[in-house]
């Protein structure tokens, strides 16, 4: 099968019906017009092909699944506002807010370093890099959001593109 370059004829018509079923409106868009034209010129042969394909379509259509129950809707809806809100904060941190927050955190660390290093210590002194920044602008919320970003950030399609072997 060479598909797009295959001229419409009995073989291609049959291949399409075999793959996509007996409803031409569900066939690849570019091939619907040529298929309709071929069918108009070969009504008996074309109708037989479509009828056979439709018989299988009807059979497949008899398998219906139950609609989701209300409990599932609740499980999906209840956490949604919080998840959207967290994602919006992540997006903010990763764009404008992220740059500002990170800069504030770095600045706070630099300013605090001399003080921390000059403080008498007993035993092992905590490393300045491990200290929580003292700046009000580098709030715990910023830290939490940055942690969230590292923990569960996923780019569009990143998860979906993995492991898609034919």
């Amino acid at each position: 099968m060479t598909f797009g370059r295959t001229p419409m004829g009995p073989r291609r018509f049959r291949d399409l019906a075999e793959a996509y079923g007996g409803d031409i409106s569900r066939w690849p868009e570019a091939e619907r017009g040529p298929a309709e034209a071929w069918l108009a010129g070969n009504p008996r042969e074309g109708a037989a092909v479509l009828e056979a394909a439709r018989a299988l379509d009807d059979l497949l259509g008899s398998w219906r699944t139950a609609d989701p129950v209300e409990a599932l809707r609740s499980r999906v809806l209840v956490p949604a506002p919080d998840l959207v809100s967290r994602a919006r904060r992540r997006a903010f941190v990763l764009t404008l807010g992220g740059g500002a927050g990170l800069a504030a955190a770095c600045l706070a660390g630099i300013l605090a370093a001399p003080f921390l290093l000059s403080t008498p210590s007993f035993g092992i002194a905590p490393s300045p890099s491990m200290e929580r920044p003292a700046s009000a602008s580098a709030s715990p919320q910023t830290d939490e959001v940055l942690a969230e970003v590292l923990e569960d950030w996923e780019a569009p399609f990143a998860d979906a593109e993995a492991d898609f072997g034919a």
Partner: peptide, 18 residues
């Protein structure tokens, strides 16, 4: 299937803002 549908939409909520 319910678990998969739930997890898929949870990912949708995370993805929509970005």
């Amino acid at each position: 299937a319910e678990d998969v549908a739930q997890e898929s939409l949870i990912r949708a909520w995370r993805q929509a803002p970005v």
